[in-house]
Computed example of a mutant assay.
Amino acid sequence: MISLKEIKSRAAELLKKNLWRLLGCVLLVSLVSMAISYIGTNIFSEAPLMQILIYLINLYVSTALGIGLYKILFKIDDEKDFSVTDLFSFLPNVKECVLVYLLQLLLIIIIIAISVLLGMIFFTSDFVNIYNSYPFISRNMMANIILSIFPKILFYVLIVSGVSLVCDIFPALSMGIVAKEDEGLKKNLFSNTFSIGFKNIKNYVLLNLWFLLLIIITCIPFFIALFVGVGSESGFGVILVILITILWVICIIGLSLYFSLAIAILFNRILKNNNDNDNLIESKSDYENDINENL
């Protein structure tokens, strides 16, 4: 049984022990991705084919480094030593990285298709009415119409966000499966990702909602202080805004690292439980085979 309370406390504990090393790994991933993007954007700005090639390389490298980061997070949870080389250890694994990226691409396409379909269901009649009556509508009337459909827009955004949140477990879990380096799981990456993911959507969504709550709690005092600082005409107000902004950025970075650790711990528990169940099934089948042979 997976306990989210234990995962959250475990993530906080591990973050305290590994904050700077983990932050360094995350910054390294960002710097590598930014460097490749810079090369494509600036050095080969007049070579479209090279830009496309570098873009694809960046996607591949980002995927490989993302998997490597999961490997490091798993090692942190298992209290094993890790190094920067773990981050780059999946660069030679072309097949796994491509499969993970294809899964990400597939889910992006699915989410876009669902968004378009829901948009057509929600707003087709409204847009048709606006289009037909547009020459006769004043700006005030247009504003009133938009305000009248605002609840529908909000509901649409919530549904699409919910679908995206639910679907997000699959590309993330696929990275975790590859990072786990379990040949049995990697052999059927797509099917294992979906079968294990569907069973654990609830915990993943609850953990994401917990993170969202922490972000909201962090943002409220920031915006209050920002409002007070901006409203102040003294130099102290400017200094206050700068200090609060720096503090807020630090908090967001810390929360992001905490969330990454929590998700990795969740996946680590899920995959360990899955392996334990598989071993239990295998042992039961072996036992049954022995009985049948004796009979």
Rank of each mutant, 00 (worst) to 15 (best):
K5I: 11
I7G: 02
S9F: 12
A11W: 04
A12W: 15
E13R: 14
E13Y: 15
L14N: 13
L15T: 07
K16G: 10
N18I: 01
N18K: 03
L19H: 08
L22S: 00
V29F: 02
V29A: 07
V29N: 09
S30T: 08
L31N: 05
S37I: 06
G40W: 06
T41L: 15
I43F: 09
S45M: 05
L49W: 14
M50I: 12
L53K: 07
Y55F: 15
I57P: 00
I57D: 06
N58A: 01
N58C: 01
L59V: 10
Y60A: 03
V61E: 08
A64S: 04
A64G: 06
L65A: 02
L65G: 06
G68L: 04
F74Q: 06
F74I: 05
E79D: 10
S83R: 12
D86M: 01
F90R: 05
P92M: 02
V94I: 15
K95A: 12
E96N: 11
C97W: 01
I108C: 07
V116S: 02
V116P: 01
G119C: 05
F123S: 05
F123H: 03
S125I: 14
D126I: 09
S133Q: 14
P135N: 05
I137K: 13
A143H: 09
F150Y: 13
K152Q: 10
L154C: 02
V157M: 14
L158M: 09
I159T: 05
I159R: 08
V166Y: 14
F170H: 00
G176Y: 00
K186N: 12
K186W: 00
G197V: 00
F198Y: 11
N200Y: 08
L213V: 12
I215C: 09
I216Q: 09
I217T: 11
A225I: 15
V230Q: 09
G231W: 01
G231N: 10
S232K: 05
S232Y: 07
S234R: 09
F236I: 10
V241I: 10
I242D: 03
L243S: 05
L243Q: 02
T245E: 01
W248M: 13
W248N: 07
V249H: 00
V249Y: 09
I250K: 03
I252V: 14
L255W: 03
S256G: 12
L257D: 06
S260Q: 14
F267L: 01
F267M: 05
I270P: 03
I281L: 13
E282F: 07
S285K: 15
Y287W: 12
I291D: 05
I291H: 05
N292T: 15
N294I: 15
